[in-house]
Nucleic acid binder design. Structure first.
Length: 824
RNA sequence: GCCCGAGUGGCGGAACGGUAGACGCGGGGGCCUCAAAAGCCCUUGUCCUCACGGGCGUGCGGGUUCGAUUCCCGCCUCGGGCACCA
């Protein structure tokens, strides 16, 4: 027998990548007659060659693109690069290379990895966030948001990272108070900054989550992040205070416990502190405020400090509107100015933190909810009848009591029902160079003036000095900084802050619909055609930041008329793949634990690496890269070589002959495989789809070695290659061509459909149990009736031995199972 | 503290409430070869038994059920998110 050429992945992968590019197989035009589908992987930050997280992401995405194309859709599969950002600028500071040069070089490396993987994109639609044409629309959008009041400037205490020398969004500060990028301890600074009014959309962002086909986990994270709490906000009069400082607003979720308010606590930064503090308490209060001001976020938030050091009495008193009693006003570091009103009514009996504070400072505790019999805790937050609560006494239902309390506050014009959110407005300005300039001018006469649209984009000058100074390098570039006011023509300064890179990634998916549109950021017709993204794929690490910002942007763009009104959500379905970990931490360049894909491209080939990522476990689960991993990848390569030999006719000797049982078995197995792989693709069960292909291949080996019927074997192999085409595209394409000739393409084949009649099994293994324990297995006809199944089971000698006599109960689930419950 | 998710062979992992461990990795054995590599085939949870067989096994303890990896209750461990949030 003449052996066919061995499997040579390097040769065939290069060949097909070239051919797909030439043929434009996955370039899709907006007037394509096929039904549209939009499959998108989160566009990557270009940090150099791809790492295994990218490989995993783009393998899943490419599988979907190819599969849906075979299913008859025009699949929009664009990609771009999130090319602004700190690392490029830091590299500039370190090596002197211009960030643009650096970023373009990293993009080339990453692009080469993606092409080597055989992942298919419509490269005509490529977007780079630092491309002037994209920057222009970024700036146009900003100005429209500014005009609509969705972008604004304010002086605010912001998160400042000393390492990055820039401010960070709340979302970029880790729970331990450090910078997500540099790991430095983030400090608070007062700075004039730009914000997007994402809080205006808090309710819609929260409510619209319900309808999204997203992982529950991600939805929960977003819900928590938005953090809606309902309650009441109301005024407390301050006893003997000067006008203008005679009342404090407090927010509470438990207005029903107002009768139990025995003191009030303000944040140390609260604006009324100076006015209400009495003279004899002033030194102590000032010392306290000064101390808290110098503490880092970590120190302030640590629960280590003893409670009696964490507060101070102001000497002032407020009136509890419910009881009319005078209650002392304290300051405490655990009350923060950034949530609610920066002031709370303290109800120690129903709030543990207030209880602890009251205990430490010897303040009274009055229960207003009767705890259940036997309750031995301190603060009680559960349900129970109101006590010591005047007109609320006796009400046991907390919701009802709350409603009553709010109604009372409203009747007395003291306050009202209020909702507060944890979500803060999005701080978007960065004191860095390598980002999209914020297109405004500061004029001493006209104030903040947007740069006229015709003058956009405001571009970054190349001749700047990169140094970590805490100010944008743009600030020291005279030519950039000094300009004239578009309104009055007088001298003015340009805004030197640039935009957070999350701005770039908040609408790129809309631009992809028609990236050529010259007159508008988003072509309405194209957006209506493709949006929302049918399937978005990316890492779980973007669960909050990017996905929340992109949702906000989509809504805001539609509200200001830049996107069609119907598009309220960007991503219909979201899939978050698991992370690749190594020694317990995420694989990333900064951790130095990257495994570049090129070493696999050069050895086992891209198809083997792709197959490995599909096979190794559920796509949503994290995967630990270990010593064993290379062996699994080798195993995938062995399997592909096995398929190669089988499809090349190197296994056994097929003949023409009448159909036998073995042939029918293979035919049925073929249809079962089609059903299995198709189903598995629908619910992200790629690992079992691959397992089924391997099992089927093993079956075909046995079949071929025993002497196969040519027609049956060839049909089985064709089907296998078709099903594998989205997973291992190069191998499938090459074998298909070798078997069928050059004028046909496996990826142009329709996705196979299983014949239900052939999927159904003819005979099955019926399990016979006695008392739920397996005692025998009998091969039976799949259409077996209940009586016959039971009779067969009862006739089994193995069963008789365990049954001793007539069964007490018979459970028959033909054809799969009969369970006999023994008498006694 | 609150909210999610996960615990199955030596390892990665399969399993509509119905044969636990599919498919692999690793191990053992055989064939091919002068030999090796590659390939092909068999075997591989654990304990008892020469064997036929049988016992035990899905983090732990209960429960529901003819039957539980799967459902319920109570724990333990790990991972993730949120957190002086009023």
């Amino acid at each position: 027998m003449v052996m066919a050429a061995p499997y040579d992945p390097q040769a065939i992968e290069a060949k097909w990548q070239r051919r797909w590019a030439e043929e434009g197989t996955y370039d899709v035009d907006n007037d394509d007659p096929r039904p549209p589908a939009y499959v998108l992987c989160m566009y990557p930050y270009p940090s150099g060659p791809a790492h295994q997280g990218h490989v995993r992401n783009y393998t899943f995405g490419d599988l979907l693109v190819r599969h849906r194309t075979m299913c008859g859709y025009a699949v929009l599969s664009p990609i771009g690069f999130d090319s602004f950002g700190l690392p490029a600028e830091n590299a500039a500071i370190k090596t002197g290379t211009h960030p643009r040069v650096f970023a373009d070089a990293r993009i080339d490396e990453l692009k080469s990895s993606l092409k080597g993987l055989g992942a298919m994109y419509d490269w005509r639609r490529e977007i780079r966030s630092h491309d002037p044409s994209y920057m222009r629309w970024n700036q146009v959008i900003f100005e429209r948001f500014l005009e609509a009041g969705l972008a604004y400037r304010k002086n605010a205490p912001v998160n400042w990272c000393p390492g990055c020398q820039t401010v960070l969004a709340n979302e970029q500060v880790l729970p331990d108070g450090t910078c997500e990028r540099s790991g430095d301890v983030v400090v608070k600074r007062d700075l004039e900054q730009w914000f997007f009014r994402i809080t205006d959309y808090a309710d819609e962002l929260l409510e619209a989550l319900d309808a999204l086909d997203w992982p529950e986990r991600v939805k929960t994270m977003q819900r928590n992040w938005i953090g809606r709490s309902e309650g009441a906000q109301f005024r407390l009069r301050i006893v003997g205070a000067p006008p203008g400082a005679d009342a404090i607003e407090v927010f509470t979720t438990r207005p029903d416990t107002g009768f139990g308010m025995t003191f009030v606590v303000l944040a140390p930064e609260h604006p009324l502190v100076g006015a209400i503090t009495t003279d004899d308490q002033r030194p102590e209060v000032e010392a306290f405020v000064a101390r808290v001001g110098t503490e880092s976020e970590i120190e302030r938030q640590s629960t280590e400090a003893p409670l009696d050091k964490r507060g101070v009495f102001t000497g002032a008193y407020a009136l509890n509107p419910f009881t009319g009693a005078e209650v002392p006003i304290y300051l405490a570091d655990y009350v923060v100015m950034t949530y609610g009103t920066g002031a709370i009514m303290a109800v120690p009996a129903e709030d543990q933190r207030d209880w602890d504070f009251a205990t430490a400072y010897g303040l009274p505790i009055v229960r207003t909810v009767q705890p259940p019999e036997g309750f031995d805790g301190e603060a009680y937050t559960g349900d129970g009848p109101r006590i010591n609560s005047g007109w609320l006494d006796g009400i046991a239902d907390t919701a009802q009591a709350k409603a009553r309390a709010i109604a009372w506050l409203e009747d007395h014009d003291l306050g009202s029902r209020t909702v507060h959110y944890r979500l803060r407005d999005w701080l978007l300005s960065r004191q860095r160079y390598w980002g999209c300039p914020i297109p405004v001018v500061h004029c001493p006469i006209d104030g903040v003036v947007p740069v006229p649209t015709d003058d956009l984009p405001v571009l970054l000058p190349d001749d700047v000095e990169f140094a970590p100074t805490g100010e944008s390098p743009l600030r020291r570039h005279e030519g950039f900084l000094h300009t004239v006011c578009p309104r009055c023509g007088g001298p003015a300064e340009r805004e030197t802050d640039t935009m957070d890179t999350f701005v770039d990634s908040s609408w790129y998916f809309l631009r992809f619909c028609d990236p050529w549109a010259a007159d508008e950021a988003i072509d309405a017709e194209a957006a209506v055609l493709w949006m929302p993204v049918d399937q978005y794929i990316g890492g779980i690490e973007h669960a909050i930041l990017h996905l929340l910002y992109a949702r906000f942007y989509t809504k805001a763009l539609s509200d200001v008329g830049l996107a069609p009104p119907g598009i309220r959500e960007p991503f219909d379905r979201l899939f978050t793949q698991g992370m690749i970990r190594m020694d317990g931490s995420k694989m990333s360049k900064s951790k130095g634990n990257l495994i570049a894909p090129a070493r696999y491209f050069d050895t086992v080939g891209a198809d083997s690496l792709r197959l490995f990522h599909l096979f190794v476990g559920p796509p949503a689960d994290d995967f630990d890269w270990s010593e064993q991993t290379d062996e699994i990848i080798d195993g995938c390569h062995r399997f592909l070589a096995r398929v190669w030999r089988l499809a090349s006719g190197d296994v056994g000797e097929a003949v023409g002959r009448e159909v036998t049982d073995a042939d029918t078995d293979v035919e049925r197995a073929t249809h079962r495989l089609v059903a299995k792989v198709s189903g598995d693709f629908e619910h992200w069960s790629y690992n079992t789809a691959v397992a089924a292909c391997r099992e089927f291949t093993n079956h075909l080996y046995r079949y071929a070695q025993a002497g196969a019927r040519r027609q049956t074997l060839e049909a089985a192999i064709d089907t296998l290659l078709t099903l594998m085409a989205p997973m291992t595209p190069h191998l499938s394409a090459e074998l298909w061509e070798r078997r069928k000739g050059d004028d046909t393409r496996v990826h142009a084949q329709p996705w196979p459909v299983a014949d239900p009649g052939l999927v159904r099994r003819e005979s099955v293994t019926m399990v016979v149990q006695v008392n739920g324990k397996v005692r025998d297995r009998i091969e039976v006809d799949a259409g077996i009736g209940e009586d016959e199944a039971v009779a067969l089971a009862m006739a089994s000698p193995k069963v008789v031995r365990y049954l001793n006599g007539e069964p007490r109960k018979v459970i028959a689930r033909p054809p799969g199972l009969v369970n006999l419950v023994a008498a006694r």
